[in-house]
């Protein structure tokens, strides 16, 4: 009884706020989910050539939620996966487009990065077009000069660590996914 006398206000407030929060969640939840979906679905056409956002489905491969991309005529043309890891300053998060059998990178889009402005942050510019069309295996390597081999990426001058970080993230995510995909379809 003493407890109730002391704490009734807290209990009443907690109930009122709880109901309020539930209402907010009900009202805004779908909108937020849609925003999150749009963020990745909006990039599908850029990440996988011919991909159509309307026909793409979410699928779970070895526990990882990925997008199975179909084109307008309902042919399976590729995959979109998320890839993240440590960059130079903070985490880098990217979307990676792969072809249907996950052997070739068809596109890359940086979702989130906090690299040094104008040096590491160049990974969001056209510089990352270098990844497009590369094979998943052998793993990509970063060079500081003009690339001579097929699997080489030219580093951003002054931001070698950002470049290698992103390359490692891409390599790891693509390889893991290709391995998982091969194991699942077997």
């Amino acid at each position: 009884m003493k407890f109730l006398k002391q704490g009734w206000l807290v209990l009443v407030l907690a109930t009122v706020f709880g109901v309020g929060l539930a209402a907010v969640d009900r009202a805004l939840g779908p909108k937020i989910a849609e925003n999150q979906k749009n963020e990745t679905f909006g990039q599908i056409a850029n990440l996988v050539p011919g991909g159509s956002a309307a026909d793409t489905k979410e699928e779970i491969v070895a526990g990882q939620t990925v997008l199975k991309v179909y084109d307008a005529r309902n042919r399976h043309v590729g995959w979109v996966i998320t890839a993240s890891g440590m960059g130079y300053a903070d985490a880098i998060k990217a979307l990676l487009g792969l072809n249907a059998d996950a052997t070739k990178i068809t596109g890359i889009y940086i979702l989130d990065q906090k690299e040094t402005p104008n040096l590491g942050s160049k990974i969001t510019t056209d510089w990352n077009k270098q990844y497009v069309g590369k094979n998943v295996l052998p793993p990509l390597t970063v060079v500081k000069t003009q690339p001579t081999k097929e699997n080489e990426i030219e580093a951003i001058s002054g931001a070698t660590i950002s470049s290698t970080s992103l390359t490692d993230i891409v390599n790891k995510a693509a390889e893991t996914f290709a391995k998982n995909l091969a194991a699942e379809t077997k």
Binding site: V10, L13, A14, F17, G20, L21, V24, D25, L28, K31, I32, N35, Q36, E39
Partner: peptide
């Protein structure tokens, strides 16, 4: 703290919904 945390959650959701 209870009051503040509730309103912060609301502000956070509104921002996520309209200024993603």
């Amino acid at each position: 703290v209870l009051t503040i945390a509730t309103f912060v959650t609301i502000a956070d959701r509104v921002l996520a919904a309209y200024m993603y």
